[in-house]
Amino acid sequence: MDIKEILFELSRRDALGSINDAAVYAGELLSRFAEIKKLGNMSVAAAFNGKSDYTLLFDAHIDQIGMIVTDVDSEGFLTVANSGGIDIRSLPARAVTVHGKEKIPAVFCATPPHLSAGETEYSDISKIKLDTGLGEKAAEIVSVGDYVTFSAEPAELTGDTVTGRSFDDRAGAACLIELAGRFSGKDLPCNVIILLSDAEELGMRGAVTAAFELSPDEAVAVDVSFGDGPGISDEECGNLGGGAMIGISPVLDRAMSDKLINTAEENGIMYQTEVMGGRTGTNADVIAVSRGGVKTCTVSVPLRNMHTETEVLRLCDLESVCDLLEKYALSGGLADV
């Protein structure tokens, strides 16, 4: 499987709360290359043993944003709450999947012009009802607490640009599965653990427990970050096609940032820096303060339209991330520093 296929297959499957299709599938792919360890929640890890006791952890989160049903009314309309950040302005007339007793399609209500007095204010997701088309039968299939996910199928745009849902962070997961293939059967200078962690979108909870359990010496959180696009200033984003985004921040280990930059420079790998003033909004924030502290950095894929079902990225950036992390692991990370 090439990395596009891995990304697309991961995108098609969902992982949110008790739904873990994507995590199960990712575990199957990883199990071709290493023994899989299932952690307390739905996180999965694959360990590659190296020549030293030093352990380098590569993390990507396998969960995604979505919604959860809070009410089912007698006419088949659902009320939902968001799980993770969602732009509610873009929900009207959007088709989604409700994960009830079976998966069913549903559409968010759009208010016709004659019912909207002037400019609509979008401040409360519970006011945008979800239409199942099932009338009173909806209650037989859908219950309070069921999950709702976006439904867009992944697709190719121009060149190596692709679009789909949950690329945050299936992009990172796809890179780490690709890396597992590259590490398989190789002599590694240190132990490498690949972790696909749960519940990042709900406050990085999967990484909190997994980092404790796995107790690494050093970690890289592989996630997505803001890519350039209409209405976004150059200062607040990276460029699609500009390569792996290497994080620099007070909460990250500067020696790691520098070594990642040097590794990219020495190997001719496309990269760009992403400087943040404090917390990164990724699992790096919690892994760094796990147990007695872990040297941690971020490596990110530039992504447009984050947290929508039309996320956009370039496959060449995934290749840059894979190449960078492969070379970094083969150099032993900061083991000798």
Partner: peptide
């Protein structure tokens, strides 16, 4: 309606596209 445009998949003949915008985090 503009809400129906934001972050939607579009098709121009055989060419796929999306209507891109500022992500919710940066608003």
């Amino acid at each position: 309606d503009t809400s129906v445009l934001m972050f939607r998949r579009v098709r121009i003949g055989k060419i796929n596209g999306v209507i891109s915008g500022k992500p919710v985090h940066l608003l």
